[in-house]
């Protein structure tokens, strides 16, 4: 058992309190599912932590007809339940209910999933990229709203003096799908993840996670789909062909899989994603 350690543990009751602790050097402790494994990786737990779970506004999902707000301390399980059945959010629900395992999903938070800098396989990242989510942060200089792509790219710098507080979503998607490829049926990190969505203007949005170090939109494929004569009529086979032709990913090597493999499976995942979209639209 841990020896008596003088550790500062602040249970923040408000965002201001959390920020004050952060300014004193405390690290954010959300569900702890990532941080608590630090000692196994040879990393000491932080000497000072601040928790967010007692800040009511950060533990809520607000669903309005055209705007949804997700608190950073909302767990995957709560997120999945809150958005289930809402057209357009299928990818986000798929990410929330498909990541990790049920016990972890009851504890791991949205904020933790997006703020874990050294984790490439975060399921929520590509799902939020196709939603074109906006990330709200509370920084030492006041609140800040930033697009999810910029947040994911710049988060090592951004999070040095900020807390992620909320994620904002518009309701402008008709349908979406989240396709993940674990090596076993369940329990391990996905080798590659493709989130795919179609918006009200029939434009496709595609994002890829776990292949490179940071999830990103697949803009080359989005453009190729948009450039199809007469616009892209959803066809899984054709989507896979275009994915193979426009595969501009540099796969990262990792313990679960080599980089070339992560890259190579992408067209098959796109094919599955378009098939899933067709099924969802068919049901609508």
């Amino acid at each position: 058992m841990a020896q008596s350690v003088e550790r500062s543990f602040t249970v923040a009751g408000s965002i201001d309190e959390a920020l004050a602790a952060r300014q004193q050097g405390a690290a954010v402790l959300a569900g702890g599912t990532w941080m608590m494994r630090d000692p196994l990786r040879g990393v000491d737990l932080p000497e000072a932590v601040v928790t967010l779970h007692r800040i009511p506004a950060l533990s809520e999902v607000e669903v309005d007809p055209d705007h949804t707000v997700i608190g950073a301390a909302v767990t995957h399980a709560v997120l999945g339940r809150a958005l289930r059945g809402l057209a357009g959010f299928e990818a986000l629900v798929g990410a929330a209910v498909g990541a990790a395992n049920p016990g972890i999903r009851r504890v791991a938070t949205v904020g933790g999933n997006l703020c874990t800098l050294d984790f490439a396989a975060a399921d929520l990242a590509p799902a939020l990229l196709v939603c074109e989510a906006m990330v709200e942060m509370e920084t030492f200089d006041g609140p800040k709203l930033i697009g999810i792509s910029d947040f994911l790219r710049d988060r090592p710098t951004l999070l040095a003096d900020a807390i992620l507080t909320k994620v904002h979503l518009r309701r402008d998607l008709i349908a979406s799908a989240h396709i993940r490829l674990p090596l076993r049926m369940a329990g391990d990190y996905p080798v590659a993840i493709v989130s795919i969505a179609v918006d009200k203007d029939k434009r496709f949005r595609i994002a890829v996670g776990s292949v490179e170090a940071v999830a990103r939109r697949w803009t080359a494929l989005e453009k190729a789909l948009a450039d199809e004569p007469g616009g892209f009529a959803p066809n899984p086979e054709r989507a896979a062909e275009l994915a193979a032709e426009n595969n501009d990913f540099h796969g990262r090597d990792g313990t679960e899989a080599d980089g070339w493999y992560r890259r190579q499976v992408l067209p098959a995942l796109v094919k599955r994603g378009v098939a899933a979209l067709l099924k969802t639209e068919g049901q609508a």
Binding site: T33, T51, R106
Partner: peptide, 12 residues
């Protein structure tokens, strides 16, 4: 709720 106790800091 069923959760893993190995990752649950007692402070929470």
């Amino acid at each position: 709720e069923a959760v893993p106790s190995c990752l649950k800091p007692v402070g929470l």
